[in-house]
Amino acid sequence: MSQTVHEQPVTAAATAVDAARTARGNDDAYAVRLSNVSKSFGRGGAPVLDGIDLTVKPGEFVCLLGASGCGKSTLLNLIANLDKPSAGTIDLKSGRPALMFQDHALFPWLKAGKNIELALKLRGVPRDQRRAEAEKLLALVRLDTAYDKRVHELSGGMRQRVALARALAQSGDVLLMDEPFAALDAITRDVLHDELTRIWADTGRSVVFVTHNVREAVRLAQRVVLLSSRPGRIAREWTIDIPQPRRIESPDVSALSIEITDHLRGEIRRHGKH
C-alpha cells in the first residue's frame, strides 16, 4: 500500500454522503452507530444537529471536522451519554465510551497515577491490580516516571497524555476526543499526533476525534467527516488511505487538506449569503 500512495488519488473515496451511507448499510459491524440523530437546546430552539447518520466501525479512526460552533462537542456529548438527543438513536457496541476534553480535566486532588486508578476503580478493577495497570498505561503514553506527580507539576502535553491514559483505563473500546490538542503548541501537538497514531494502532480502539484543524484531521484519520453549521449535518466525507505514520507537512496531507479546506470554507461562506 505504501508504494501506491501517489498512484491513486489521495481522496480515494471522496464520495457524497448518500453513496457512503448505502455502501456501509449492509455492514453490521459497528462500534458506534448514530441514526437520524437531532439535537436542539431548549423548547423550540433551532436544531444544532439535524439528522446525523454516522457509523464508526470497530477500530476505525474518524475525524469530525467543522467550523467552531457547528455542534461537534454537542455530538460527542450525545455519544458519551452526557446529554440526550432530541430525536434519533445512538447505539454503542460496548460499554461506556471514554471522552477526552480540550482541557485535560484531570482531578488536581489526585496524583497522576491515582487519576488513572480512579478510572480503573470505577470500571471495577480489583484494588490489587490497579497500580500495575495504571503503571502500564502510563508507560503506554511514555510517562513511566509520572505516577507520583501532581497534575500541576506536569506540562500541558504531559497532562494530555495522562488524560489519554485515563481514558484508555476505561473499559469501553470507543475513544471520543474533543479537540484534545487544540491548546498545545505545534511541536508538542506533532509529537502527540505520532503518539496517538501509535497507541491507536496498538490498542485497536475506535476513535472519534473532533477538531476544527483540517491538517490535524488529515494527519490522523482514516475517514474525515465534514459537518455543516446551523444546523449541523454531515456535508461530506473523505476516506484517507495515506499510510501511517503520516507527517503533517507531507505533500499528500497538504493536498488533501487544501481540498477539504475549500469545502469547509464553502460551508462557512454559505452562511454569509442571504
Binding site: 505504501s2 508504494q3 500512495v5 501517489h6 498512484e7 491513486q8 488519488p9 489521495v10 505520532d194 501509535r198 499510510p243 505514520p245 507527517r247 507531507s250 505533500p251 499528500d252 493536498a255 488533501l256 487544501i258 481540498e259
Partner: peptide, 21 residues
C-alpha cells in the same frame, strides 16, 4: 494532486520502526 511528485516512495517507510524511538 496525484501528480505532486515530492513524496518519494521510500519516505513512507522512513518513519517506520526507527521513528518510534
Amino acid at each position: 494532486m496525484a501528480s505532486t511528485d515530492l513524496t518519494k516512495p521510500a519516505e513512507a517507510e522512513d518513519h517506520a520502526p526507527g521513528a518510534r524511538e
